[in-house]
Write a protein that binds this DNA or RNA. Structure first.
Length: 347
DNA sequence: TATACGTGGGA
DNA sequence: TTCCCAAGTAT
């Protein structure tokens, strides 16, 4: 048996029944692939159903406001995926007559689509034999072949792509690609892989050399930055608040938040009110209380946010305000959504 | 090319 | 608790 035959045989018996597998419509496959980037199926599934329900075609997605798309993406993370998805949807609808590009070379030109996603769509929807290399593929191949090249080095990226390309079943590339990913996700798992019942146990290099737990090799750990956020949750006499969009680079681009004062450490009320930014916002009299006695630590992949929510009661403001009931229409980071849920429930 | 970009689940 | 990490991409 070849590697590919063994794999596909396993897949035919063990594949997951997932909604996007009922279709070869590139729009649906594209949606699922973008949503599942760095995201577990269990987390992305409900978003996929919501998106395909609300936006059954690429034209529906293209017609929506970016803010609407981000609101629907709220909670899924890596929001640039949603912005790029929307950007590309408009391009497909308006410049390509709604027709999804049909080759790897053309697909990868779209914003938000890289080597992995272009390969996935090209193979699944158009039978182009181009191998996907995602986290599952790195794990399966590094173990089976005992390859110690770091998977996040440029040498590793090339080596594994080339290897996967030699293994792909050219007569059913989409099935092969999905099979190797499902096998990695369900069987050759990061922790506690099912080596006892593995169809490759007779020829797996990692199993033979007891290297399963050492592979794949990944170099360098990420550095985590600590930041201290003070959100100013305003309640005016006429029951309004301030919510503004995060612009420019950095986290949560395009999402909304309460006015934010960042500091070098957790600060107390006196330090808050004497800060320049605070005085700038509230020249008038205010009543202030700290909502969360203990800081909330919100962990992102590269940052730990030590967060305090300050409840500020004040008179009418001259700045741009919105009604409290309109907050929920805006996309917000999960940190803010969680706060709102607690705050509004307590009231 | 190294780094930034979210969130949640499992061990 | 802490750490890893999950169908990657952009810059």
């Amino acid at each position: 048996m070849t590697f590919s035959n063994t794999l596909i045989y396993w897949y035919l018996q063990n594949n997951r029944d997932l909604p996007w597998r009922k279709s070869r419509n590139p729009y649906f496959i594209w949606l699922s692939e973008i949503m599942l980037q760095q995201t577990r199926v269990a987390q992305g599934l409900s978003y996929y159903l919501k998106f395909t329900d609300t936006f059954p075609t690429v034209f529906d997605l293209a017609k929506a406001d970016e803010s609407t798309v981000l609101k629907m993406w709220q909670g899924l993370g890596y929001y640039s995926r949603a912005r790029n998805l929307h950007f590309s949807a408009k391009q497909i609808a308006n410049e390509l007559n709604g027709e999804f590009p049909s080759t790897y070379k053309e697909i990868i030109k779209l914003k938000g689509i890289g080597d992995y996603t272009a390969s996935a769509i090209a193979s699944i929807c158009f039978n182009e034999p181009t191998a996907v290399v995602d986290g599952n593929v790195y794990r399966v191949l590094s173990r089976y072949y005992g390859i110690k090249t770091p998977i996040n080095s440029s040498a590793g990226i090339k080596e594994f792509k080339a290897l996967a390309q030699t293994l792909i079943d050219e007569s059913q590339p989409g099935t092969f690609n999905q099979a190797i990913m499902d096998f990695g996700a369900l069987h050759c798992k990061p922790q506690n892989p099912l080596c006892d019942s593995c169809p490759f146990s007779g020829s797996c290099m990692a199993l033979e050399k007891k290297l399963t737990n050492e592979l794949p090799v990944k170099e360098k750990k990420i550095k985590v930055r600590k930041r201290y956020f003070n959100f100013l949750v305003i309640k005016t006499d006429d029951n309004k608040t301030i919510l503004s969009e995060r612009k420019g680079k950095g986290i949560w681009q395009g999402l909304f938040q309460f006015p934010l004062i960042e500091s070098n450490k957790n600060i107390n009320k006196n330090e808050l009110v004497s800060s320049e930014e605070f005085i700038d916002l509230f020249p008038a009299e205010t009543t202030i209380s700290l909502f969360n006695e203990k800081e909330i630590v919100h962990k992102l992949s590269h940052q730990h946010l030590y967060t305090q929510f300050w409840i500020i009661e004040t008179k009418k403001l001259n700045k741009a305000t919105i009604k409290w009931t309109e907050i929920e229409k805006h996309p917000v980071p999960i940190l803010i959504a969680n706060f709102l849920e607690t705050f509004l429930t307590k009231k």
